[in-house]
């Protein structure tokens, strides 16, 4: 109980918070420990979806280690709110989104410099409290009125994806709550206040020992790709492209996989 309480508190206090992480020492001209000299120098700002926090923080550190004269600043928030910020002229060089539609909107507005490239994939899983008290073993259980079931609200990406998977499986869900974001849904399942929820596989991993995942039937396993692109109004297009290249490289791929995402 104590662990789940702590996890719950950590999750609720962190929920919805816009986290901004500045990496590196910001110093220019210092020679890197491995002496790599790539000629790149300056600061690059990356806007990334909140669900990519761990991946992008590590990728930024790795990029800075490789390019000693470069500082990477990453700002994390919901894909949609970052999209709005970029449209409103926020100074960003790279955008990594959790939803193709937000990237498409920026492409349509002429905000992208290059083509979006998918660098990570994620898929839906059923999340249940440790011990699976509701004996949930598939999507059909989400239509069970006797169970306490949570979904993401249809307005947010995980909710849209979830409804699609349920429709493909021919299940009419009986949700007791439609949570405004995936983390608040995970929080309620981890606390044992719901018998089942539909979240991303990476969220099940983030839930640790308090939750278990139930894989979906591969026929309906809904998958999403995370695209990244350089932005048209970037002041540092060379560094921005180098960062995107690094993200889709083998090094980037291993970082992505180490956090539970699938490589593209």
């Amino acid at each position: 109980m104590t662990t789940s309480l702590r996890a719950l508190l950590a999750a609720v206090t962190g929920a919805g918070m816009l986290t901004s992480v500045a990496c590196g020492d910001g110093g220019r001209g210092a020679a890197g420990p491995d002496g790599a000299d790539t000629g790149l120098a300056g600061t690059v700002t990356v806007f990334a979806a909140a669900s990519l926090t761990d991946v992008l923080t590590e990728a930024a550190d790795a990029f800075e280690a490789q390019h000693p004269d470069v500082t990477v600043e990453v700002s994390f928030a919901g894909s949609q709110s970052l999209r709005e910020q970029i449209l409103a002229g926020a100074p960003a060089d790279v955008y990594a989104s959790a939803d193709g539609t937000d990237m498409d909107a920026l492409a349509a507005a002429g905000e992208l410099a290059g083509h979006p490239r998918v660098f990570a994939r994620n898929s839906l899983q059923i999340v249940v409290p440790a011990g699976n008290p509701g004996a949930v073993d598939g999507l059909a259980d989400l239509g069970e009125p006797g169970l306490l079931v949570g979904l993401c609200a249809p307005e947010v990406p995980c909710g849209r994806l979830g409804l699609r998977a349920l429709a493909e499986a021919g299940v009419t869900p009986e949700p007791d709550t439609e949570e405004p974001d995936v983390r608040s849904l995970l929080t309620k399942v981890a606390a044992g206040e719901l018998d089942a929820g539909l979240v991303y596989r990476t969220d099940v991993l983030a839930g640790g020992d308090d939750v278990e995942g139930v894989a979906l039937d591969p026929a309906v396993a809904a998958e999403i790709g995370y695209p990244v692109a350089t932005l048209a109004r970037s002041d540092e297009p060379d560094i921005a492209s180098a960062f995107v290249d690094a993200l889709v490289s083998d090094t980037g791929r291993s970082i992505v996989e180490s956090h539970g995402f699938a490589a593209p």
């Binding site: 609720v12 919901g78 949609q80 949570g150 609200a153 307005e155 947010v156 949700p175 007791d176 709550t177 439609e178 949570e179 405004p180 608040s184 929080t187 309620k188």
Partner: peptide, 24 residues
């Protein structure tokens, strides 16, 4: 939203509806 959840017609009050509408 943390205690009662969010479901139209059962627990979705105006502030919850506004928050979700902002998403879409």
């Amino acid at each position: 939203v943390t205690f009662a959840g969010n479901l139209q017609g059962r627990t979705q009050t105006m502030p919850l509806a506004v928050f979700l509408a902002l998403e879409s």
